[in-house]
Design a protein around this nucleic acid. Sequence first.
DNA 1: TATCATACTTGGTTATTCTAAGTATGTACT
DNA 2: AGTACATACTTAGAATAACCAAGTATGATA
Lengths: 112, 112
Amino acid sequence: MPDFFLDLPQGTLDLLVLKALTWAPRHGYAIARLLEERTGDRLRIEEGSLYPALYRMEAKGWIEAEWGESELGRKAKFYSITREGRKQLKRQLNHWETVQDAVGRVLRTENA
Amino acid sequence: MPDFFLDLPQGTLDLLVLKALTWAPRHGYAIARLLEERTGDRLRIEEGSLYPALYRMEAKGWIEAEWGESELGRKAKFYSITREGRKQLKRQLNHWETVQDAVGRVLRTENA
DNA sequence: TATCATACTTGGTTATTCTAAGTATGTACT
DNA sequence: AGTACATACTTAGAATAACCAAGTATGATA
């Protein structure tokens, strides 16, 4: 068992993936590499977390998949964000900001 | 089943409780009310989340409990943070900031 | 008498993350 | 030829924490 079970707090992966897909449609592997790059390698996007997350979000209609060819000529499943996915992104963004704000208020309090 | 399963991202409750206990020892109910107040009611601290969290943290040695009397003369279990708890708080604070920073980098990216 | 606030407990459900192992293909090195 | 590595996806199983719901018990208030 890992030291810190959750490297990523439950719920944030969807947010990151949805946001990444607003930039352009991409396949899973590329999403993972891109997110790691964008976070300056602060986060590792585990494949065992990412792919199931993609399947769940596809099932919920937030993203759509299409098989195609990767930059290197391999078969790869390309995902794009749907209209419903953008709505969901907005909700999750909102939620993230609320939590961030609330936690920030507590952490900045030096006595109470 | 709730609309948004996780109101609080998994892992943040410990952080909030540990931080709250650095202000003063308090009983569970008071911790909940105080955190809600401090977050301007942005977060609801559910009793079914809080009390199990207190038991877990006590079992891990991060906090200590002692039965006493509440402000209103009722019996209540007062928790205080231990030395080990302060170390844990520091780790979790660090982790929270890393995640926050990383997610922020992604959310602020407009194309990639 | 009924309701509400205080204070704690606990059982069961759920979602999500993670580790780990696997499939398959192509390239680069020795 | 053989090995290793990067790309790309899949899936089983374990672990965890947050949540709802229901309960105990007490005192104050209407």
